[in-house]
Design a protein around this nucleic acid. Sequence first.
DNA 1: TCCAATACGTAGTGATCGTTACAGAAAGAG
DNA 2: CTCTTTCTGTAACGATCACTACGTATTGGA
Lengths: 184, 184
Amino acid sequence: MAGRPRSFDRETALAAAVEQFWRNGYEETSISTLTRAMGITAPSLYAAFGDKDHLFEEASEAYFRRTCEGVEAAAAQPRVHDAISHLLDGTARAHTAPDTPPGCLMLTEPRLTAQRRAVTAQIKDRLDQGVSDGDLPPGTSTAQLASFLVAVMRGMSGSARDGADAEELLAIAANAMAVLPPAP
Amino acid sequence: MAGRPRSFDRETALAAAVEQFWRNGYEETSISTLTRAMGITAPSLYAAFGDKDHLFEEASEAYFRRTCEGVEAAAAQPRVHDAISHLLDGTARAHTAPDTPPGCLMLTEPRLTAQRRAVTAQIKDRLDQGVSDGDLPPGTSTAQLASFLVAVMRGMSGSARDGADAEELLAIAANAMAVLPPAP
DNA sequence: TCCAATACGTAGTGATCGTTACAGAAAGAG
DNA sequence: CTCTTTCTGTAACGATCACTACGTATTGGA
């Protein structure tokens, strides 16, 4: 039934894996890099998390949950302009936070297309609600707007990886806000 | 003095290398992938192009020259709004051209930060000229605007890699145009 | 024709990749 | 205590990485 207990904290180790994947992406993060960062040996990693693919899946899900909290907090703003403004500003700050790697794992990693689609849909839903609330003109092409916003956020992630600071990213966010049609 | 002549066309082989780096990036493109695509053996590759780093340097320079032609052609438009519109539309089409890999090598590859800075400066110069031409309001923060435009283009590249078609990218481009202040 | 020079293909280098066999250590169950 | 179960570290697996030593082929020049 019960054997030798695990000598490390699974969630702490997973958090270390998240950071590595975040900083370097899936392909550039090797198992030896992971075991070093997580403070465990390869057999322990495989016993606790399966193979590299499965570990990445768990790591990206954890990252995704954290990201979604921010998106939903922004979307909770009653007026759609405030919601999108908070979304973009929060993105700018998250991509340049000093205690985390620059940029965004979800927006950068090639194999996370599904998560990007999910966030795009989430933003579109908030824009649709803005239209029903009367905060956006009827007939606003919310899908195109959401696609534009995700493109801007992805661009912000790339700029952050190139060394841009929060100020520069906040300026990009402020510029993007000009695309939102004013309330009718 | 003169030995055995090279059995392959150097420029054709370089073009094949460009395509591989374009499609998969520097790290994901292996020497064996390159030799297969270029139709040569590894010793021939090393004799003709040096090591992988040097081949990538030549490939990205060739790519950069091609890209700059498009940027300069767009910048040649007399009115700055037309110039930026052409730039964004051309980017949308280039990122989804059927005979080339999706997206943009220069905007995606981590090690090409310098080229991105160069293009950003190029765009800023064109915006500055728009200010002196009276096509943009005096005091327009052209550096921030250029940074925003590059972020959008980079986002377009990512969307293209996720499978977006020309129509979706053109919509992003059209949305981005709303950020350009109207002529005074 | 013989030589020097260059490119060619074969076959390999050591290093690192993701992954695992194996044996010993540490827990609960009897 | 012994037994079973699970985790631990060592040490390796075959595959692939970027790269190259070496012998052969093919050229122009003497």
